[in-house]
Amino acid sequence: MAYFFQQLINGLQLGFVYALIALGYTMVYGIVRLINFAHGDIFMVGAYLGFYALTLYHLPFPLAILFAMAGCTLLGITIERFAYRPLRNAPRISALITAIGVSLFLEYFSSLKFVFGPNYLAYPRPFSVCIYQIGTVCISNIQILVVGVSVVLLLILQFIVQKTKTGMAMRAVSYDKNTAKLMGIDVDYIISVTFGIGSALAGAGGVLYGIAYPQIHPFMGIMPGLKAFVAAVLGGIGSIPGAMLGAIIMGIVETMCSAYISSTMRDAFAFAILIIVLLVKPTGILGKREIEKV
């Protein structure tokens, strides 16, 4: 039983990192109906920005994470502005292919020697690892940090989306862009903000991931990106609470699978979830059927 709870804690840690990524997928999809396949790579860039902030500039951890978030915000907004916006009214498949192109570009450009370089790098930890024993279960300060920071960011996001004028406008634009324009809402601006917020969360996720699983490389975004995408679909793509729930489930399922079945099977398991969701309930756990607007 202790082993089970131990795995549950590990699963939660992974789940919260997935949540930070999955939210970007779901928010962007909600507002422009685009699967932003470059999102996992923004997560990777976030991890590197955090890395440089910690090693090169010796920033304290909270500043390092803010630095990564700011950098990713800028990156996300730039990608939207130059890669996706010109295709806003093009067939969806064009934007999707462009997203894959942006993803490959970020991965291979980052691999260049004068950018991040192709090698694995060991991630610095802002403090030494310390493990607390609670009963028979161990929990590390790293785990507390990852979960704590994620929860704070998720609460801030929830506040922005539910309570602020910009958050309301994000929801209004995702529902009906033309009517939103009639209210004087600058739809392009709101879409930029959405990309910015989603990317900031992914950037924070990258730093936390680096600290929790301390190794980074330019292709590190692919797997967590895909898993977070599955999580977003599982929760119901377009739904913010759905993405959080889906991600936590994914993190726990994956960890349990490694622990009880086989660690080589865990990716197969994760994607089996995608297939099952698509077959059984394509709208996901909390997703709504798209209402056709006349």
């Binding site: 529902y175 939103a180 209210m183 004087g184 209402i291």
Partner: peptide, 22 residues
């Protein structure tokens, strides 16, 4: 607009708040 076009996912209050966006 024709067909009213409410933001169905927003509350009545939030719809009015969006009306006053500017």
């Amino acid at each position: 607009p024709e067909g009213r076009r409410p933001f169905a996912n927003l509350t009545v209050y939030e719809n009015l708040r969006m009306g006053a966006y500017l």
